[in-house]
Design a protein around this nucleic acid. Structure first.
Length: 951
DNA sequence: GCAAGGTC
């Protein structure tokens, strides 16, 4: 049995391989220089196995918008909430992907060794996808480990489990939402504000991110709190007592008063009889607690405060120390050591160090490590601790390593012990207290040099002692505003509100600095810049239920993600709800953008330019149909150099299915309505042609290109296999014709009063074509005129101009026939001068039964219901005129001609009584396009097109 | 040129 083992990063693969192979692995190269391959033998589930170990480098796949949405001006940013997204392997990860694809071929099993957190689980599924695509039916296992130590790794191998899809799904939802919201708001802000404030913002990227904005919001909020702060004066009584150079400071029990007169009055009373009496002397042991086991956030905060290294640098250094095997995984939320972790061994590892080796010895000599237990656990990684001794580090790496070791040794030792004395004295009824502290045992403080515990010496008092204070006076102070946020404060706020992960707090802070939303005051305090201030004020003031600059939106999202992980909420539901939520916010922002301009104008001290709405190319967002090859959506895109349109699979480049439209297609719009014949996945499209392909029909025309009408596909030169799953059987044309009629003719009012899209379902290739359907005017043309005697003066084209009468000169069955068309040739109007049926009339006319007449007194057409339902196969008569222009006559062919009947052939439940209802002339949506047989444009015969013309 | 999350 051969297993491919995949870790999340190369160093992890290397270390795991070293452990499992007991140092005897063979190294090979992958396609990527970073991700090596290690080979060795091991025992897996009691059996000898050959192991191939390699790694990815974090996520292997990433969500991206479909190609037509990547250009910033390709679409209105709001479209990004619906735009198709695909998971792609970025170019610089292709080599890693290829390595996996190559290596899995020789294996029967796959073991996922990614980090045991949410992202790791998702990365695991990415690896599974890539490998399964190449090799289905793999045995797939998940190794769960919390640190790369022999014990943990062997335990993982001996307790292999299954990957957790719920956890991975949550990450997918998170990724998609972050992409959509980030891109939509970033484009909106950047494109607009660059033009509104060209002087100040022309070259600025004004990004939005669901983490960076709330982080900015914290900085602004604190800054505003300081700005809004009004100091309030207060007064207190200061009292101290000096004996033999020792000054004991007493604190007034009332602390402070905000009324000067009252304070002065009390002081006066005290001064009248200033003799202080010691009422009580209390002594009690006092501890200073050792730190909790170290988690990421605590490390970032303390290192930032004490070592003045930014959180971003700290994490970078910690990552490096981890990959060198010197410390445990640095991204952890856990502050409880697992029972199985051998702390004594870890302490012993540090015993030879010159700086803290003696302390490590002392721990072992005083009962061994005894950590405090925190309350947090991510169930994935233990608290950060040293895993190896190192004394060759330098610079900040050394400082961070030293901090981690000292913290570890401190947290497994003992609290510092002291003795506190509290003295209470009375002066004229006012109480004062003084505290003294004697430190008995420094314990952890001896190694944890980042904290101080100062002893405070006070005079030795006994109960009943009296003394005259050395100082007894009024002290005037004022309340002070809160301080500006430090990085440690900011991280604490992010953690509290669930903004970002332990691994990313530092990056978000760095981002808002890079964007110049915030700056640093005295190098440690965060202050908002003018842009950041204006943006937050803008978003806070436009009446959003929840401002984008507040943490609530993201925090709510995180709660949902947790529910997905726990299997309590459907990821698809969360995805839909969250998209909807953010889209609503986006729409409000767009609506109120001018208010945001004003806030920014105020802060930037710049006048906003009046700008027109951004022009977008308006890519069609709605999918036209599902790709028959891969099932992804197919959407309309522009060809290169604006040379027309095509409909492309959003699975590109994995799926290269495309529907190429000729340059004759001027516009194409996807309608809301699905094709009743092709089903809900195929939308009708409205196409406008430069030169009308379907002469006599309206232009633009509503069509289905889903393959239900082979004529449409042929006319547009669309390959059936690109729109429909084919198994070698072509669609039945007659079926389609019948279906169309059955749906539309007798019972065409079942769509909210709308009727057929095609007032004229017949088409021809005007007028040089030799086929002889009866073309009639488009929607704007004069209806019902084709059957009456017409003067040329009566004929008005779609431009509302008098039409010109011409004669067909081209050889063919229509040679010599007269027709009308637009005299300026600005519209596609066409009308035969006479409605005499041509001798080439086919399909419809061939079905006419001359003994039944419609209300126009024309021989009615006999047709058959082909739509599924109780009337399928039943013959009926209807007006032969095109939809929208006939009389609406309907009669079952198998019943007496009594004008009654039990309803039309439609099976939509709306049957009964609509038989004689005249079709409305307005176009409708929802009814299937009516199609007739198409004829060859070369010879005029049915059954083939010009491309396949045998003549 | 967008996000956040992995990592190199």
């Amino acid at each position: 049995m051969r297993y491919l083992n995949v870790a999340e990063k190369n160093d992890a693969a290397k270390n795991i391989a070293a452990i499992l192979s007991r140092g005897a692995s063979q190294r090979r190269e992958g396609f990527s220089p970073y991700n090596k391959i290690y080979e060795f033998d091991a025992t897996v589930m009691g059996q000898q196995a050959h192991m191939i170990m390699t790694s990815v480098s974090g996520h292997l796949l990433n969500y991206e918008f479909g190609p037509s949405f990547r250009n910033w001006k390709s679409c209105n940013p709001v479209a990004l909430f619906d735009a198709p997204v695909v998971k792609m392997c970025p170019e610089d990860y292709q080599k890693i992907k290829r390595t996996l694809e190559r290596e899995i071929r020789s294996c029967q099993g796959l073991i996922i060794w990614t980090d045991c957190d949410r992202e790791g689980e998702n990365i695991g599924f990415e690896i599974i996808k890539v490998c399964s695509d190449v090799k289905p039916n793999l045995r797939i296992y998940r190794a769960k480990f919390s640190e790369i130590t022999a014990a943990s790794i062997f335990r993982a191998l001996n307790t292999l489990g299954q990957p957790n899809k719920n956890v991975s799904d949550a990450v997918d939802v998170r990724q998609e939402l972050d992409l959509r919201t980030g891109a939509a708001f970033t484009r909106l802000q950047t494109l607009r504000l660059q033009r509104v404030f060209p002087q100040k913002l022309a070259d600025r990227l004004i990004s939005y991110g669901s983490c960076q904005f709330p982080t900015l919001g914290f900085v602004v909020e604190r800054y505003q709190a300081i700005q809004d702060f009004i100091p309030e004066p207060f007064w207190k009584i200061k009292m101290n007592h000096t004996v033999n150079d020792i000054t004991t400071e007493f604190t007034w029990k009332r602390d402070r008063l905000f009324d000067k007169n009252a304070c002065e009055a009390i002081l006066d009373i005290c001064k009248e009889s200033p003799n202080a009496t010691v009422e009580k002397v209390e002594g009690k042991p006092k501890s200073k607690w050792r730190p909790l086991p170290l988690d990421t956030v605590e490390m970032e905060k303390t290192v930032s405060r004490k070592l003045k290294i930014t959180a971003k640098d700290t994490m970078k250094i910690a990552e490096k120390l981890y990959t060198q095997g010197l410390i445990s995984y640095p991204r952890t939320e856990t502050n409880i050591f697992p029972k199985e972790l051998n702390l004594a061994n870890l302490v012993t590892l540090q015993q030879n160090d010159q700086r803290w080796g003696a302390f490590a010895h002392r721990i072992m000599n005083e009962g061994g490590p005894a950590p405090r237990q925190g309350k947090k656990s991510d169930q994935a990684h233990p608290p950060i601790h040293p895993t190896k001794h190192a004394d060759n580090l330098t610079g900040n790496e050394q400082r961070v390593y030293e901090y981690i070791v000292r913290h570890f040794l401190a947290c497994v030792h003992k609290d510092a012990q002291g003795f506190e004395t509290v003295v209470t004295a009375d002066i004229a009824g006012e109480k004062f207290t003084a505290k003294g502290l004697i430190i008995l045992e420094k314990n952890y403080l001896e190694v944890y040099t980042y904290e101080k515990w100062n002893a405070k010496e006070i005079h030795s008092y006994q109960q009943g002692d009296t003394f005259i204070p050395s100082v007894l006076e009024l002290y005037e102070g004022a309340t002070a505003p809160p301080k500006l946020l430090t990085e440690a404060d900011l991280i604490a706020l992010m953690e509290k509100h669930g903004i970002g992960t332990d691994a990313t707090h530092a990056e978000h802070i760095d981002t808002i600095k890079t964007r110049e939303y915030v700056g640093l005051h005295e190098n440690i305090y965060f202050v908002p810049g003018t842009l950041g201030m204006g943006l937050v004020e803008g978003y806070n003031n436009i009446g959003l239920e929840v401002s984008l600059a507040k943490p609530i939106l993201r925090a709510d999202f995180e709660k949902d993600l947790k529910l997905i992980c726990d299997g309590l909420k459907d990821p698809e539901v969360v995805r839909r709800e969250q998209i909807q939520k953010y889209r609503a916010v986006f729409e409000t922002v767009v609506e109120k953008m001018r208010q945001i301009d004003e806030c920014l104008a105020n802060r930037l001290a710049d006048r906003p330019q009046v700008v027109e709405d951004e022009h977008y190319e308006n890519v069609e967002v709605r999918p036209v149909l599902k790709c028959p090859k891969c099932g992804n959506d197919m959407t309309i895109r522009n060809k290169k150099n604006n040379a027309g349109k095509f409909i492309s699979c959003t699975g590109y480049p994995d799926c290269r299915n495309a529907i190429w439209l000729s340059q004759n297609v001027e516009t194409i719009e996807v309608l809301d309505e699905s094709c009743p014949q092709c089903g809900p996945n195929v939308k009708l499209v409205k196409m406008k042609f430069k030169q009308n392909v379907f002469v006599g029909e309206p232009n633009p025309n509503t069509l289905c290109i889903g393959g239900c009408d082979i004529n449409v596909l042929e006319a547009l030169d669309i390959n059936l296999s690109s729109v429909k799953r084919t198994n070698g059987v072509r669609n039945n044309q007659n079926h389609n014709i019948h279906q169309a009629n059955a749906n539309n003719v007798p019972n065409n009012n079942h769509n909210n009063g709308h009727t057929q899209n095609h007032p004229n379902p017949r088409r021809d290739s005007w007028p040089s074509n030799t086929t002889t359907f009866n073309p009639t005017p488009g929607p704007s043309g004069p209806s019902n005129r084709s059957n009456t005697t017409m003067n040329q003066d009566d004929i008005v084209c779609a431009c509302n101009l008098e039409a010109v009468q011409l004669t067909v000169r081209k050889d063919g069955p229509n040679k010599g026939r007269k027709f009308y068309k637009c005299k300026n040739q600005t519209c596609d109007f066409f009308l035969w001068a006479s409605d005499e049926p041509s001798n080439a009339n086919t399909t419809i006319n061939s079905q006419q039964q001359n003994d039944v007449k419609c209300k126009c007194d024309l021989p009615a057409s006999r047709r058959t219901v082909s739509k599924e339902g109780p009337n399928k196969g039943r013959p009926f008569y209807c007006c032969p005129k095109p939809m929208g222009q006939g009389c609406g006559f309907f009669q079952w062919a198998d019943e007496d001609n009594d004008g009654g009947g039990d309803g039309g052939p439609g099976d939509d439940g709306h049957g009964g009584g609509p038989q004689r209802r005249a079709p409305k002339t307005k176009t409708s949506r929802g009814a299937p396009p009516y199609r007739a047989k198409r004829k060859c444009s070369k010879c005029g015969q049915e059954g083939h097109t010009k491309n396949k013309c045998p003549n």
